[in-house]
Design a protein around this nucleic acid. Structure first.
Lengths: 248, 248
DNA sequence: CGGGGTCTTTGATCAGGATCAAGCCCGTGC
DNA sequence: GCACGGGCTTGATCCTGATCAAAGACCCCG
């Protein structure tokens, strides 16, 4: 089934041998038989560590399904998530030997991976993959900067609302729907992962979700399934101006 | 005089017609006569706005001297700096019509700018500029992520110490010295800009600098000139582990 | 030299979120 | 059925950094 994400030029990935609803962000659009020759698929369980910060980097590839996180840890154990990897996002980078962050599977994750040496050699021969990587990296940079605004200046309540907006939009994009009133989706993150994302503690995350529920901004069914009765109200709670919304 | 930044492959820029101690990050290494044909120089005073978020993007180019900032503002006026542009950093991006952030001169700034349309056309013809832009963007992304760790998890005191470490390192790199005990440098930012950078208020910035001064970690001469008697102690205060130091 | 403005420092108080500490919900295995 | 454990929620208290307020330091310009 063909897929089109709005800001990315990703297409379906017909040659991928496994069943998945998402996009292999390189195989599809690149149309390079050479990529097929060096790719394999790997699956990780929720909680598995895909790569450790500071260790030699072994994996280059893109997320086919599931959610993974990038995070860094301070000396005393405080942790901050610095990247959220959703289907079609790229993991690892070429020509770098050491992984800069911990990469952890937040749900079951399937990756389309490439042998690093072969991948680097291919980059040297086929420049137009580099153009695509540049665009993807610029998108990530924009997302990182919106995230910095959130971390530096938003209240706990605004942070939670912003995260719900992001997940709702990505989820809608994945199913090629518009976000609007009454949208429902499942949170792909535990309370702990949300806290790491937002620079909060799990208690504060829990309290603020409860507060938004009591205020009627969100409806929770169980602990992970969310319905947004009025998307405009959620946007108001997120603290963003008109539509300078969070990218990615 | 030739310049070499450690993590970037920048070189001197002999053909630039103006006197500057820093690097034109594209003209130099690209060795493209075509770039010369479409470049001009522009100077801005401290406080000048170089581009407004949401307005059509007019400028593409790199910082030759001075310091500029990228920032975003929430609806109620809270502001967060999301990028710090030092000599050799690139401003603007190709193939994007709308500027994503406010760009402001923090000191007097000189830019080496290119006509946007001509620059985009050149990118289409000469792929290897794209490779260089990719590397620069990846460096920026790394810096943004270290910054997220700072914003999300560091205390005010650690934030100030981290900023001093960053400025000391960039300053040392610019003069091809090693950072070490007794280094001195001048802060290129006002207290307000530091607060925007760190997600703090100016009062807290001022208090924490005073605290570090009283603790003997830094010496201040006037309000902008800093000496670090013991760089290791400053590093300890920054909260970073061993040497996972802040990139860029 | 003096005056006004901007930038910075310092003080007093307040509040948002962290921390510490139970308890709850729900799936799992015995 | 029941105990166990992991993830989540709620409560009480504390503390860091924001806010409100005022006074110094510095600078440009007459």
């Amino acid at each position: 089934m063909p897929q089109t994400a709005p800001t990315r030029t990703a297409q379906s990935c017909p040659q991928c041998p496994i069943r998945h609803s998402a996009v292999c962000s390189l195989c599809g659009p690149s149309e390079l038989a050479e990529l097929d020759a060096i790719k394999t698929y790997q699956t990780f369980q929720a909680g598995d560590v895909i790569a450790w910060a500071g260790e030699p980097q072994t994996i280059v590839g893109s997320v086919v399904s599931g959610v993974a996180t990038l995070s860094r840890t301070l000396a005393d154990g405080r942790r901050q998530m610095v990247g959220l990897l959703l289907p079609s996002d790229f993991i690892g980078r070429s020509r770098t030997q050491v992984a800069p962050y911990d990469v952890t599977a937040a749900t079951e994750v399937t990756l389309c991976t490439f042998r690093k040496r072969a991948f680097d050699e291919m980059l040297d021969r086929t420049m137009h993959i580099e153009r695509r990587l540049l665009q993807m990296t610029l998108d990530e940079l924009d997302a990182a900067r919106e995230w910095m605004l959130l971390l530096g200046r938003k209240t706990a309540r605004e942070k939670i609302a912003s995260l719900l907006v992001i997940v709702a939009r990505r989820d809608a994009a994945l199913h090629r729907r518009e976000v609007g009133n009454g949208v429902s989706f499942r949170l792909p993150l535990t309370r702990e992962a949300m806290a790491d994302y937002l620079g909060l503690t799990i208690e504060t995350v829990s309290r603020q979700i409860s507060a938004l529920r009591k205020a009627g901004v969100v409806e929770m069914h169980g602990t992970r399934d969310v319905t947004i009765p009025d998307f405009g109200r959620l946007l108001d709670e997120s603290g963003d101006d008109a539509d300078g919304g969070i990218v990615s």
